[in-house]
Design a protein around this nucleic acid. Structure first.
Lengths: 172, 172
DNA sequence: ATCTTAAGTTTCTTTAAGAAACTATAGCAA
DNA sequence: TTGCTATAGTTTCTTAAAGAAACTTAAGAT
């Protein structure tokens, strides 16, 4: 009767959420992106219990999203830095922020905005097709089994869906 | 001693996670995006407990991410459909999937891929600047207080950070 | 010798998750 | 009439996780 793990599913959303979908985890990462790297400041900034913070930092370090870097000796103290895969979570935070700005802030009054140094403008994140740069919508995306698919799971999802063509392989 | 709510923070990431960051929620939304709209199929497809599914569907409906649509009378039965704000969560799922494909699937064998009907290619999601279309990275983004900022929170984050210029207002 | 700082541990209480049985409503079948 | 099925939940009981607050450890500073 422990909490169900998502990592058994052959689904990248499920596998990702199994790691970063726990309560507090993405807020911890947000703070680390802002440069809050040490235990005490994270406790104070987040208002998280020390026990939970300990667990989350341990898990994220095990999953190679954070790494501990010593910043002092005698006694040795560590801070938490983002690894390459951790840095690659920035788009996740940007997209969550974008959604909250749109749907949860009063009259679109965003609490934080980003200046994009490359173009000099206040920037909002947009998710596009890496190939053509066009918008990705429910209408123009056709999911199909990928190379890592498990056919029983695909079949099961198809039969549970109102869309009978779901996951039908498309000839390009 | 109930679970801490994130919605008090003036941060769109926190507010968003307060709603869609609960255990199971994004997987429920994934299934609904795939067309699994009814209670029983969701239970079977996800392997979620009926109690938790009930709670999550109720919350998502209250938050106007889903709405109940009757599909039969005598007895009246409802299915759950995405609202406009719910449909706008597609980018969140695409970005989570992209991260999992990159970092969690064996040799990049994605379980699911999407054909982008507009360009005809197998598409991966990419997060770019809505203004110039350029990449958004830790290096080229300068966070600054937005119109909905609360100065004490901004100051608190700045002083907890290793970056003394964090949230320094930029003159464009 | 005691104080302080940083990073946790430990203990205790409450809440949430999971499993499985139970309920409600109505159509249909014998 | 009685009973079976389907769908969408409720209820009950057990275990795990979250939260609050006190405690620990280690070493330099006062």
């Amino acid at each position: 009767m422990q909490r169900t793990t998502f990592s058994a599913q052959h689904c990248s959303v499920a596998r990702t959420l199994d790691i970063i979908g726990e309560w507090w985890t993405l807020l911890i990462l947000r703070d680390i992106f802002y440069g809050v790297r040490r235990f005490e400041p994270l406790v104070e900034q987040l208002g998280i219990s020390r026990k939970v913070l300990t667990h989350r930092l341990k898990r994220l370090t095990e999953e190679n999203i954070l790494r501990k870097v010593p910043y002092q000796h005698n006694p040795c103290r560590y801070e938490y830095r983002l690894t390459a895969s951790g840095l690659d979570l920035l788009p996740v935070l940007l997209v969550l922020m974008r959604w909250g700005d749109r749907w949860l802030s009063e009259d679109g009054q965003a609490p934080v905005e980003f200046v994009h140094a490359d173009c000099g403008q206040v920037s909002t994140a947009k998710v596009v097709c890496a190939h053509c740069g066009g918008e990705l919508t429910v209408r123009n995306l056709r999911p199909q089994p990928g190379p890592g698919a498990v056919l029983e799971e695909i079949e099961s999802m198809r039969s549970a869906s109102v869309n009978p063509d779901l996951f039908k392989k498309i000839r390009l």
